[in-house]
Design a protein around this nucleic acid. Structure first.
Lengths: 344, 344
DNA sequence: GTTAGCACTCATTTAATTCGAGTGCTAACA
DNA sequence: TGTTAGCACTCGAATTAAATGAGTGCTAAC
């Protein structure tokens, strides 16, 4: 048996209705809801078929039907195909260019959560393959140097370096020139062992400092996978949806939100997975994070200039309003994509 | 009517028992629980007195008694008085000195939450009154300067400053010398308007840059009240306590944890309030954060060197095990206090 | 292929009942 | 005077029973 146009229409009606109410939906409701002008009995027949095909299911006999994960999937895919082109402008986000990156990200998460009434997360852009823009070594006191490294995208890292021997101004100046001329403009992949060896040789007695600086540079550029920064907002929104609000589930979801490293696997998955650099939807068990298997996750990848990519995600019940969420994310992506140019 | 030794003993028994079970406790239980060898009838008489005095209350007639906020307060005060001296070493925290501050704080929060089964928060030390150690202005490219400011306690801030006119090396060097010699070693309270005016005058055409740098310095030193960093862990633990786990309350508590600025008022309160620099307990309504009025909060102030003070807090149900929590915090404070010396 | 009709199912709601932990009060006792 | 046993009483929580009603599957007729 195949799914035909009429079955599809009925499925959509079931999904939409369920998204609104959260209650199983019965045949009579659909009969009135759609413009198909079919009686409830006919709908019942079709629904029996849809159930056999696995798109909907009954929580128990003599209850209405709810969409299965497979049903959601079909619905989402169909909807996404329809929306492929359009990009709506999201309501003003007031991204002032002076604002610090983290404050901006926090605010984006907050706006998104407020806007959708779901929980939102956003990962700071991972600076993969970014280039060194500026390195500076300075003496703070007798035994302390500070290394300031700035990479493209104006991301700054500081590292404190302890030294045993006093370095005079001239030496530091020499090291600075050396570091900038050797490493400036390079990305992490371009900095190889031979180069490091040569630098160390040039540095002579101060080779251990070079090591420390290189480590700091590596740290700054590659933005180590482990603790990629993730900001969240609106966790409390899950309590709006009774199917997520029972203690067991809520506890797991809240935990995933607090111990952000679980979310980071989601981010990684999204970043590698996004061949289309578009919007991805994980429904229930499809999610890479097992503790939120009762949720759906909609993610989008944004890009701030070359190589700086991050992930935005909306986490909500399976019956989330996919259409609205996709629209919101599309709009937001568009804004973020633009941000880099303006900020430059 | 006054509270006497026997009433006190009975109150303690009621509190302890309630902490364990979370259920209202009846006279018969107390009669067996204590070593007073009194019949339940006698206990009932005493309980009637305690209720009249406001230390305990009945959720409804014909239920046992539970401690009122006032009852908890008396219990806590008595206990704290007993424990005044002792400081237990907490289990190894492995605070490696190389570790970054934020990672360390995150881990402390996590350990504490795991240890107590309550929710934990820790605020990064606010650098009130700290002194400028080092300022450096560098040119990144034609229109961008970067200001690096380091204050005592090795806290580093970076600010990017946009300039319209190109500044040559010499000018920057002059500005650096000026800034360091004028501001180095000073705390925010010592930097006054007259000094700023003089600096601006010295800077001549570049006075707007001085403004920006001063702002950055102010930002770095005073650790602006608004977003003082707060790390949390163990929010999910609130689901362990049925009296907090209903949707309404859980939602509010979770929100307070996510939008950390609510907690920051708690931190501020603690820091100003801690004349004794010790442990403080807020029971129910006593808490400065209204959304967690069904919880109790135990806070401790730690100090990493001069002036760098932060707050640790445990948030749990009113029937939290105050004794254990106070012990944990005492141990932890001790460790943190030591950390600074070792790290120096 | 569609529809009306009907018997059947079963979670949910509502009401009635029981249960029992705990109380206050009184009277007796040391 | 303080302590205790005893007893009637209260009232939330748990249990049971009945009523409700949304929704189904199936059959027979259109």
């Amino acid at each position: 048996m195949e799914i035909d146009a009429r079955k599809m229409k009925i499925l959509q009606a079931i999904v939409r209705n369920y998204l609104e109410t959260g209650e199983p939906v019965g045949s009579r409701t659909i009969s009135k809801y759609t413009d198909l002008n079919l009686s409830s009995a006919t709908i019942r027949n079709e629904m029996a078929d849809l159930e056999e095909l696995g798109y909907i299911l009954q929580p128990h006999t003599s209850a209405g039907r709810i969409p299965s994960d497979k049903g959601y999937r079909l619905y989402v895919d169909t909807m996404m195909a329809e929306k492929e082109q359009e990009v709506n402008e999201m309501k003003e986000l007031l991204l002032e260019k002076e604002e610090k990156m983290d404050a901006m990200l926090k605010r984006v998460a907050k706006v998104l959560a407020n806007d959708t009434n779901y929980a939102a997360m956003i990962s700071a852009p991972a600076v993969q393959g970014n280039k060194v823009k500026f390195i500076q070594l300075s003496r703070v006191d007798k035994h302390q140097l500070i290394a300031v490294i700035m990479v493209e995208g104006n991301i700054i890292k500081n590292n404190i370096i302890h030294v045993n021997d006093y370095l005079d101004d001239e030496t530091i100046l020499k090291l600075n020139i050396m570091l900038n001329s050797s490493l400036g403009g390079l990305s992490i992949s371009e900095i190889n062992l031979a180069m490091i060896a040569r630098l160390k040789q040039q540095a002579g007695v101060h080779e251990d400092i070079i090591s420390d600086v290189i480590d700091a540079v590596a740290d700054a550029i590659k933005g180590n996978d482990e603790d990629l920064e993730i900001y969240t907002s609106g966790a409390k929104n899950i309590f709006r949806y009774p199917e997520l609000a029972d203690n067991q589930k809520a506890s797991e979801i809240i935990d995933a939100f607090e111990e952000k490293q679980m979310l980071s696997s989601l981010v990684k998955e999204t970043l590698t997975n996004s061949e289309s650099r578009g919007i991805q939807v994980y429904i229930g068990e499809e999610s890479p994070v097992s503790t939120i298997k009762d949720c759906s996750v909609v993610t989008a990848t944004y890009e701030l200039g070359e190589g700086m990519r991050g992930t935005i995600g909306i986490i909500g019940p399976k019956r989330m309003d996919y259409e609205k969420v996709v629209d919101s994310l599309k709009g937001l992506m568009h804004q973020l994509d633009n941000l880099y140019d303006k900020n430059e």
